[in-house]
Design a protein around this nucleic acid. Structure first.
Lengths: 121, 121
DNA sequence: CTCATTATTAGCCCTCTTGCTAATTATTGT
DNA sequence: ACAATAATTAGCAAGAGGGCTAATAATGAG
């Protein structure tokens, strides 16, 4: 279960278009992307991108691997899905005994559960 | 598919703790809650709650029914799930032919698809 | 009609966020 | 050693966001 602080940081991080766009770029790339590559794809200056990346990193949405003079950023998919998924799940009415109704629209609970095989930070 | 503007508004709306909390309260209630009921549950003033509610409404996350001198707010679950779900789905690598890998963690795609039986605003 | 209740609107202030440029650090190449 | 490249840090300015109080609107009760 994500802490309040985690939820806070994630939603804040995703509240800015550029940061969401960075996340999407990283997601589509499938792997790592260097800071400069990302910076070039935005109308704003490189330092601004750097700051966005730091926000994403502090939110645990992204991880960096520094190698030589370049920094490679990678999306932490599981964290995005775990935090957002868990929050969305909370929207449902409090379950009496954690019994998810077998009928009706599927809950994202399964997603966050299935994905929870990874490290929980 | 949610428009960019929709995504923007939803993520902005959910970037504030109080607004997220309002959404959760409405979600848990299962139905409608009057403005004053919500306002009383926050440390800040009533007008501040009113503003938060307006933001949520403009984001399409909530709908109001005014009756007499009270306003009743209701969560639009489908919209929350449709927009957030769709965005999360975009994180996955662009599918070659929309073929979701049969192995690995399940996508939220199913959720948003299953839920998409409702009105698309 | 008058008063109380419920809620929203208006306007103000202060903080936080985000953009920028300039400076700094670290690494690679010549 | 020196210059070039990659990236971050520092510091500043502008604007947005969110809090408050006071004022206004609308409805219900007596």
């Amino acid at each position: 279960m994500p802490t309040l602080a985690e939820i806070e940081k994630v939603f804040f991080a995703l509240s800015h278009v550029s940061r969401r766009h960075i996340v999407l770029l990283l997601g589509h790339s499938g792997g790592e992307l260097p800071s400069g590559y990302l910076a070039k794809r935005f109308p704003h200056s490189w330092p601004t991108t750097t700051r966005h990346l730091k926000v994403l990193e502090e939110a645990g949405l992204v991880e960096v691997r520094r190698h030589g003079r370049s920094s490679h950023y990678k999306l932490k998919r599981d964290h995005v899905q775990r935090v957002l998924g868990a929050w969305i799940d909370q929207l449902d009415l409090p379950s009496p005994t954690k019994t998810w109704a077998p009928t009706g629209p599927r809950s994202v609970a399964q997603l966050s559960k299935a994905t929870a095989t990874h490290k929980g930070k």
